[in-house]
Design a protein around this nucleic acid. Structure first.
Length: 812
RNA sequence: GCCGGGGUGAUGGAAUGGCAGACAUAGCGGACUUAAAAUCCGCUGGCGCUUAAGCGCCGUGCGGGUUCAAAUCCCGCCCCCGGCACCA
């Protein structure tokens, strides 16, 4: 009799069987009676080494995948690699390895480790975004976007990461630092390519309401990021000029209190309207416009007078026009009307430059007191015919008045900016346009795609390596055939991940990105699993892409991910496990010691999936012990010559069995509470010790326990299933069923806690068919209960059937 | 500052209005063993009473409230984590 199991042997055996039999492959055709399910994990950047954070992500997905298959779903469960991006390029700079070679090795390593974890992907659908067969479709989509006006080029203030040597989208700057390398981001002016995500701002916002399967936290983050504000655009005419300056405000009710205007330093019309010292103004602009946005601290407010005044459109007052360093060009109209009495920023500015402050809103309990702005709502004062009105109403009426008199209009603005996709790096998708002196910007012809990354480049660590290729840049114009130069910017790698989930359906299709009909039949993704750090990045970009592709007629749905599970981070020493932080516990080291089955079981048992987990080996041994125990019981069982007895198993056992199956099923399917599901399986196994080897209870219970543990620890479960005489391999077996009727029929005794004034005094054991009145009577007869009710006045007798009794008594 | 999420034994966690601490880990005690490992059994929230079986009181960040009953709902506060941060 073998005592312990050899995880290495068993895991290898079953991985080979699964692969040989192609158990997890799935065809694109969905039969009429088949229930399809698309389960997806956020694909990884192939760092080359899996750590426990990855294991957590994949264990959640794979366990659920195996559960779904066993419950009759036709399951699509693919894996791929987000293989473009800076780390590979940095490796090239540091170690002189070509990125494509480097990344191939990394992917190979990742795949080996993923297989060793026993993940049940359909490997034939592998997607690698760094292959030209993938990224050519980025280029193709780019050209479609260009044709539709969804891709465009503009010169604007951009975020520049000096360490990565490239521009960044707004979403990729966190607290003024680069999301990848945490360097301070600088603001520069640069001409760059953008995707027009703002075109979908309203829809991206509104449709969040329909995403019932998404965590509220993610939806809120997206809502805040999109940042919708409604208000009015008000035009301020300049004195002695035909110019007027439009400003956006959410508080038209404060318009009478507007005593100056502020323009963003980058405002394009400054030099046309300024009449002060232009040199000084230019100096101010230079100082403030291009700067670092490193800040937790709010910068000191600074401004400069333009030497010109505007007219307040309501009261005709002459008000000065300034430039101010805290006004954003990218938001609203790049100009604001300042109401110092009712906006703290304007208040500070007014104090600094000695500008007039006029109170126009008076709140009921707080109001403007001269020390700081009053920003709340209230009754209007000093506002002509609007005086006395409440803010809410005044906003409406003043806006209508502005519309009637042609001085303004209702307006909605968003914080969301267009997605800057240009990157000055090599290891990304070349943007497929050329610059022709005669024809201007010309897209590469579809038939000439892909524009491949050239091999003859130098990685010096300075500048864009693409510019060092001798042949890449020089090309001919697709329109006129004349000499032209190729764009050397590549795309943000978030472009790759914005549609990879569609490519899994047709990973090898070479004449289009994917087959629309098949994609429509599988998508949206039924369950997506990934980290919350992508709440606004990848998840917002993908929602935008899906809509844009829908409007291009390429898909027929607008939301890509129906349900979203954000798993918690695996944390070590206080920060997220990652190779760059050097705090990883690798999947390999855990795997060597305990095996994949234990590693998976433990990480799922340690906490519910959405919670962060501070990694610790403490406890993993418990899961290892549990599997060993189960294994030993199965060995005992197969060693027993005795045939299981006939007749029906005892009620206590049946109750335990069916209840266990029920709990495990509910815990997995309702809310991914794998930790409690595993606890229930442990209880079942512990309960089986009451029955001797060879008894039918033991035999039945073991089979069920092995079956239930299958999704979590698939190798050893498959092996045990075989040992127990399972005919099919476990992953092709059905999921155990439970019978609610058996659960209630076999409930032999009911334990009813009896409390007096809410304090537990006794537990009453009764048969489940005892009438309620008798239960109360029995409870009152109990010695322990009488101690607390005798001689006192009974106020109330509460019996919540099958749950609890509470007697409310009063001292007399 | 604003918006989220959270705070339960020594530890990971369970319980979402009805027995607080399931299931584990760690610890302690015992069995087996020459010994250790492995395995198995028992105990394990705090305080107090009791020779003992047992019993009582307290206890889910803090303070109040609702309720027959609160970790769970409501109000106020403290602390931790995450996101946003001069967006007019």
């Amino acid at each position: 009799m073998k005592k312990d199991f050899s995880h290495r042997e068993i895991e290898k055996k079953w991985q080979d069987i699964w692969e040989k039999k192609g158990v997890f492959r799935v065809s694109n055709r969905i039969g009429e009676r088949e229930k399809k399910y698309y389960l997806l994990e956020m694909f990884p950047y192939p760092s080359g080494e899996l750590h426990m954070g990855h294991v957590s992500n994949y264990a959640i997905g794979d366990t659920y995948a195996r559960y779904l298959r066993r419950n009759g779903y036709k399951l699509l469960y693919p894996m791929g690699y987000d293989a473009m991006g800076l780390p590979a390029e940095n490796a090239a700079i540091k170690k002189g390895i070509i990125p494509s070679e480097w990344i191939k090795k990394c992917i190979a390593n990742m795949m080996v480790q993923q297989r060793q974890l026993g993940l049940s992907y359909d490997w034939e659908r592998l997607v690698n975004t760094s292959e030209s067969e993938y990224y050519r479709w980025n280029q193709w989509i780019f050209i479609k976007f260009l044709e539709k006006g969804l891709a465009y080029k503009k010169k604007a203030a951009i975020n520049w990461c000096p360490s990565c040597g490239t521009t960044l989208a707004n979403e990729q700057v966190e607290n003024g630092k680069c999301w990848r390398c945490a360097s301070d981001v600088e603001i520069r002016i640069k001409e760059q390519w953008y995707f027009k995500i703002t075109e979908y701002a309203e829809e991206l916002l509104n449709d969040l309401d329909g995403l019932y399967g998404w965590p509220e936290a993610v939806k809120i983050q997206q809502r805040n990021w999109i940042g919708r504000s409604s208000g009015a655009i008000v035009r301020f005419k300049l004195e002695d000029s035909d110019y007027s300056i439009p400003v956006f405000t959410t508080r038209p009710d404060t318009l009478y209190g507007s005593t100056f205007l502020l323009l963003a330093p980058q405002h394009p019309e400054i030099m046309d309207i300024a009449s002060g010292n232009k040199e000084e103004i230019q100096r101010f602009i230079n100082e403030t416009a291009v700067t670092s946005i490193k800040e937790k601290e709010v910068k000191e407010k600074k401004g400069i007078y333009l030497g010109i005044n505007a007219v307040n459109p309501l009261n005709g007052r002459s008000i000065p026009v300034y430039i101010a360093n805290f006004v954003f060009m990218e938001y609203g109209t790049g100009a604001i009307m300042s109401v110092p009495a009712h906006d703290q920023r304007d208040f500070e500015f007014a104090k600094k430059y000695g500008l007039e402050i006029v109170e126009v809103i008076r709140g009921s309990d707080t109001k403007y007191d001269g020390t700081c702005a009053y920003e709340g709502p209230g009754k209007l004062i000093n506002s002509d015919k609007f005086s006395g009105m409440e803010s809410r109403q005044a906003i409406e009426e003043i806006t209508s008045y502005l519309e009637e008199t042609g001085k303004g209009a209702k307006s909605v603005q968003y914080k969301l900016r267009d997605w800057l996709i240009s990157r000055q790096r090599y290891w990304g998708t070349p943007i497929p346009v050329v610059y022709c002196e005669k024809c201007g910007i010309v897209p590469v012809k579809e038939c000439d795609l892909p524009v491949k990354l050239p091999g003859d480049v130098e990685f010096t660590g300075k500048g864009n390596p693409l510019e060092t290729s001798s042949g890449f840049r020089q090309t001919s114009c697709p329109e006129c055939g004349g000499t032209a130069s190729r764009e050397t910017d590549t795309m943000d790698t978030f472009v790759d991940s914005s549609w990879y989930f569609l490519r899994y359906i047709n990973p090898h299709t070479s004449d289009k990105p994917f087959k629309t009909e098949e994609v429509n039949s599988w998508l949206p993704v039924d369950q997506y699993i990934g980290g919350i750090e992508h709440a606004v990045l990848h998840l917002l970009y993908s929602r935008f892409f899906t809509r844009a592709l829908c409007d291009l007629g390429l898909v027929n749905f607008r939301e890509p991910f129906r349900n979203l599970l954000c798993q918690g981070m695996v944390v070590k020493d206080g920060s997220k496990m990652s190779k760059s932080r050097g705090n990883v516990v690798t999947a390999d080291e855990i795997n060597m010691k305990y095996g994949a089955d234990t590693a998976r079981l433990f990480i799922l048992f340690a906490s519910p999936p959405e919670k962060d987990l501070e990694w610790s080996d403490e406890g993993i041994n418990g899961c290892y012990r549990f599997l060993k125990k189960l294994w030993r019981m199965v060995q005992e069982e197969t060693d027993t010559a005795k045939k299981p007895d006939e007749g029906s198993p005892d009620d206590k056992f049946l109750h335990l069995l069916h209840n266990s199956v029920k709990s495990v099923t509910i815990d997995i399917s309702r809310d991914f509470h794998f930790n409690t599901a595993i606890a229930r399986i442990m209880e079942l196994v512990n309960g089986l010790r009451d029955y001797p080897p060879g008894s039918q209870e033991r035999r039945m219970g073991l089979k069920t326990a092995v079956n239930l543990i299958g999704p979590f620890s698939p190798h050893i479960a498959s092996e045990m299933w075989e040992l127990l005489g399972g005919e099919k391999i476990l992953d092709e077996e059905g999921w155990p069923e439970y019978d609610e009727k058996i659960i209630s029929r076999t409930r032999t005794v009911m334990e009813i806690p009896v409390t007096v004034n809410g304090k537990l005094r006794e537990k009453l054991l009764v048969s489940p068919d005892t009438p309620d009145a008798d239960i109360l009577k029995l409870a009152k007869e109990k010695e322990k209960v009488r101690q607390f009710i005798d001689g006192r006045k009974m106020i109330k007798e509460i019996y919540i059937p099958k749950k609890i009794i509470n007697f409310v008594v009063k001292e007399v």
